[in-house]
């Protein structure tokens, strides 16, 4: 897997690169600002771009804007946003654009090496990995209230879907929910059926399920404002 990293803090840029390389992921280039992201993606054709939000020169949402731009230009590219804070509005914007995998995680999640590597693979493969803080913030407020479109899902299925949205693999979900991998698969096919998702390859259906889920909880911006 070929990855590029855009992070203005050298300490973090080198830390993430070292961690990925230790786990046999190629870090082919790094940059420090938004234009740098476009440049190295153009030059190196990576599978995944890992990008900070606050970047020079404005130190505001440069990273998000650069990520949106790079996704427009390279539709298949996976983009994983790493930030020191999660902003649901940014999630909404990222999900509205492009087809490639998308991830949005807090930076400290990198330290949970296995979960982080899973998210990296998920996003590089076209999947979705949203920080559990985004998911739980949105979800906890709405739990109990009837979530439109997800009303048919059982509590267990909702939990599984939440974990899918976070970019977890089936085995990780099994560990998390303390059930067998085959039970996870059963839950997931039940989710696909209840959400009336077309039969296609599993990865694509996972993305669609996550999108349905996000739409239902209003994180994709469609049900708000």
């Amino acid at each position: 897997m070929r990855v590029v990293i855009v992070e203005d803090q050298a300490l973090l840029r080198e830390g993430i690169a070292a961690l990925l390389q230790e786990n046999d992921i190629d870090v082919v280039a790094t940059a420090e600002d938004g234009p740098g992201l476009l440049r190295i993606v153009e030059g190196h054709k990576p599978d995944l771009a890992i990008c900070d939000v606050r970047l020079p020169p404005t130190f505001t949402d440069e990273g998000i804007r650069a990520a949106l731009e790079v996704r427009r230009r390279h539709p298949g590219l996976g983009v994983l946003i790493l930030s020191q804070y999660v902003e649901p509005a940014y999630t909404a914007e990222l999900l509205q654009e492009g087809e490639g995998g998308i991830g949005y995680l807090l930076k400290e999640r990198v330290s949970e090496v296995r979960t982080f590597l899973e998210a990296v693979r998920q996003v590089a493969g076209g999947g979705t990995a949203l920080d559990r803080e985004v998911v739980s913030t949105l979800m906890s407020e709405r739990r109990g209230a009837a979530v439109e479109g997800l009303g048919l899902l059982s509590a267990r299925e909702l939990e599984a879907l939440e974990l899918i949205a976070q970019g977890r693999s089936n085995s990780a979900i099994a560990r998390e929910l303390v059930i067998t991998p085959s039970a996870v698969e059963k839950h997931i096919s039940s989710i696909f059926a209840k959400l009336d998702l077309p039969i296609a390859d599993d990865d694509h259906r996972r993305v669609l399920a996550v999108l349905a889920y996000l739409r239902a909880i209003g994180a994709d911006g469609s049900s708000k404002s």
């Binding site: 300490l11 973090l12 830390g15 993430i16 961690l19 400290e108 990198v110 330290s111 949970e112 090496v113």
Partner: peptide, 8 residues
């Protein structure tokens, strides 16, 4: 964050 990455 850098510390937690190294610890990880």
């Amino acid at each position: 964050v850098a510390l937690s990455m190294k610890l990880g």
